[in-house]
Design a protein around this nucleic acid. Structure first.
Lengths: 225, 225
DNA sequence: CCAAAAGTGTTGTGTTTACACCCATGT
DNA sequence: ACATGGGTGTAAACACAACACTTTTGG
């Protein structure tokens, strides 16, 4: 411990942090709340907190998702465990990070004067508390990777959606434009979506065919994009 | 806590566990030690242990690798954090698991009357302590996946190796035969190995060209196998 | 009738797979 | 001389990337 402050927690305290992604205004957003206590008081941070007695991290995350985002049963996946000594000035605090994907329509942020929960674009994040920016970057990398070999995008889309919506969602997350014809061709060839009999009408434009995912469970594919 | 025993650890105790892979006798092996204490006394288990004061998990794993396998500087990667309440009968014990890849030539297992450290084939594991079998399965999945888009296999091979050795190593880990010509063609096209001027002679057969990895650092490739 | 977005195929290029014979050596 | 494993190329199938015009609707 060459010259460092004596750390306070022994054994290490255990927390969870949730990277809650959603799509809003054609942008990938993450839910952050303002810290009401030191350290990093006033800085935005990932929703999370200490495990309560006999609570596994998976449950703690469920609790956070319910309390802060008003959702349950959404796609959730453990990301990585961060436990550098210098990540929290209070001492040795280990955090098990998770990411979750939430449909914008089901996300229910309880507004809260003190914590000011808000969605932030991942493209322009402010300075964050702790190592939370690093955690978000890690989550984003994982999300992008998984888009390419799983069907998890279903959890960001409405039950019924159009091909242009689907493609747009991919483009937003991957950060690049895709070719319309190649996209549709490949996606349909995967056999994981089916047409519905409905169409979605919009103002002053041709209505689009609606599709739905055959399964709303995560599935690994051989290949993808 | 419907009817469960009261759990003892609060906050949860934090341990690390190491899945140490190596290749031996044309087989993928993992290092296990016999437990000398309850619970699961006498059962083989992953080497690991509790964090000491102010020790991040990464350091704890380094320590385990040094003490149990006699190696340092080997390829190591965090896997997943397991913290189900029922994984340890003593109570809430969280483990951060890691996997490591060790060249058979550098592995130095200190024999130990009590712990009997031994390499076990991943294909025929005995009953293990805790959830350690699950951890090994998880590590194996990760290793297989990473073989397909990284160069980490370098850390299981000698500095200089032949194409048949390289291919054999892939086959052992992936558990399937590969085509010799296609394998060499693809591998050379990646540009991550170079020929040396040496050949490896064996008894009663044609000597094989020796290659070496251009870089002994982990690199992500676009595609692979 | 016009603006806006939906929908639709073909062609060229590169990648992947399948496959069989000769070679160099030590014994 | 022979047994053993090392080394080499080609062709067919498939996957991927590039590309532009027509259709349907609402206003």
């Amino acid at each position: 411990m060459k010259g460092g402050k004596e750390k306070l927690f022994w054994p290490p305290a255990v927390t969870v942090d949730a990277v809650i992604f959603t799509i809003q205004e054609n942008d990938l957003k993450v839910l952050l709340i303002k810290r009401t206590n030191e350290p990093f008081k006033g800085y935005p941070a990932l929703p999370g907190g200490f495990l309560v007695k006999n609570e596994p991290s998976k449950n703690a995350i469920k609790r956070v998702l319910k309390d802060k985002a008003g959702v349950k049963g959404v796609y959730t996946e453990q990301l990585y465990t961060f436990d550098n000594l210098n990540r929290d000035p209070r001492g040795h605090i280990l955090t098990v990070s998770y990411f979750a994907l939430v449909r914008p329509s089901t996300l229910k942020i309880k507004s809260n004067e003190r914590e000011h929960p808000q969605l932030y674009s991942v493209k322009k994040l402010p300075r964050l508390a702790f190592d939370h920016k690093q955690i978000i970057e890690y989550a984003l990398g994982r999300l992008r990777a998984k888009l390419e070999y799983t069907n998890i995008i279903y959890s960001l889309l409405p039950l019924e959606f159009t091909m242009p919506q689907l493609q747009k969602t991919y483009e937003i997350i991957l950060g690049k434009k895709l070719d319309k014809r190649n996209f549709i061709k490949k996606f349909l060839s995967l056999g994981i979506v089916k047409q519905t009999s409905k169409k979605l009408s919009g103002p002053r434009r041709r209505p689009a065919q609606l599709y739905r995912f055959i399964s709303q469970k995560p599935v690994e594919l051989k290949k993808f994009f």
